[in-house]
Design a protein around this nucleic acid. Structure first.
Lengths: 200, 200
DNA sequence: CAGATTCAGTACCGAGCGGTACAGAAAAAG
DNA sequence: CTTTTTCTGTACCGCTCGGTACTGAATCTG
């Protein structure tokens, strides 16, 4: 199928990347179309032609965020031991929450927590996406139990949920301006709750 | 000073209590004046006469929330040992986050996380109020160190921050619909990071 | 009683929202 | 060249927002 007419004059991926930052800083409801299009450097009309509407733009933005800004999570899952998986994840998470070239905090956490009215499905969508990460971690921990890397009576879902609780709590702290070193100190304490193979 | 004119025809405290629930469920920006006055059972005009404006109403609502819904935190601080203080706080917190006669989650956490634009000072105000609680806990833990109740090399601020991280992470989970038992399981794991006098 | 204050209710303000319509220019295919 | 598609830009849609003005009735003090 051939292409007819004037081609798109902007880089949709680059524009989406800029939209991510706006949603990250201001949340779904707090980011107005004027904010978004201004940051994306394109016109209102072009945005609707390229992405459909605000909600679809948000979905695309969250997908890009998960792919680029959460890459450390997938890398952490590849660590050889459960302890290393968790420690790598939480430390990288604390650093990602406080990168000085990015908004502080986590897009998924602060993007839709307050959306309780008409946009309740946004909050549910974000919660489900976080739950998917928690599930992936639980499966990795279940494998660790099979490998004798965690005590056999460990509940992998409960442990994964605890890790995500620390991650999200740190996200709330980061959004409040707590510095990186303080987040890492919380990670260090949190790691004391993780069983190690040696202690078994 | 005497009172002249028609007296107020509604219970301001009861109306404020209803406003708390709306802010709790929908956040600061998500709660419209129509939502608020409808729940409070009073007129728009009466609200402005009694509370000033939306932001002052929110301040009053948060104060009432801290006084009534966070009473368990002050009770927890009165526990005899640091371990008991933390465990009592986190368990009561998990239950408060999932009371079926109240909105799920924490007003302070979900009330203003997404407020990044004009209402940024709301988020900062909420963060400061959470920090005050963290500071109170840190002082209680410092006393515990003096009493030999925690190892002398313990950093009370870091430990208090960790406890608040767990509390806020659980608040995020609760807002996502995670049930009480799951929150309590995270508390149980989190407690493994808390030193006890016996283990010293 | 008169005067003061608050009541409930409604209509309205300017502003911003998400989204659309329409303009005229630009760049591709045939 | 014509046609088609997308471009940029502006104006506008209906709606909701927080907040105000005004009305007439109600209820207090003095």
């Amino acid at each position: 199928m051939a292409h007819r007419g004037r081609p798109r004059g902007f880089d949709a991926d680059a524009a989406l990347k800029n939209a991510v930052e706006v949603f990250w800083r201001q949340g779904y409801e707090g980011a107005s179309l004027s904010d978004l299009t201004a940051a994306m450097g394109i016109n209102r009309t072009s945005m609707y032609a390229a992405f459909g509407n605000k909600e679809e733009l948000f979905h695309r933005a969250l997908a890009l965020y998960a792919e680029e800004e959460m890459a450390y999570a997938r890398e952490a899952l590849a660590q050889p031991t459960a302890y290393a998986v968790i420690e790598t994840f939480l430390r990288a998470n604390a650093e990602a929450l406080t990168r000085d070239d990015r908004p502080v905090g986590c897009l998924s956490v602060q993007g839709g927590l307050a959306a309780g009215g008409d946009n309740g499905h946004i909050a549910r969508f974000l919660a489900d996406s976080r739950l998917a990460g928690e599930q992936a971690l639980a499966e990795r921990l279940a494998r660790a139990i099979e490998e004798g890397d965690l005590p056999p009576d460990t509940d992998p879902h409960a442990l994964a949920r605890y890790v995500m609780v620390v991650s999200e709590g740190n996200a709330v702290h980061a959004a409040a301006g707590v510095p990186r070193e303080a987040l890492l100190a919380s990670v260090e304490i949190a790691m004391r709750a993780i069983p190690t193979r040696q202690l078994k």
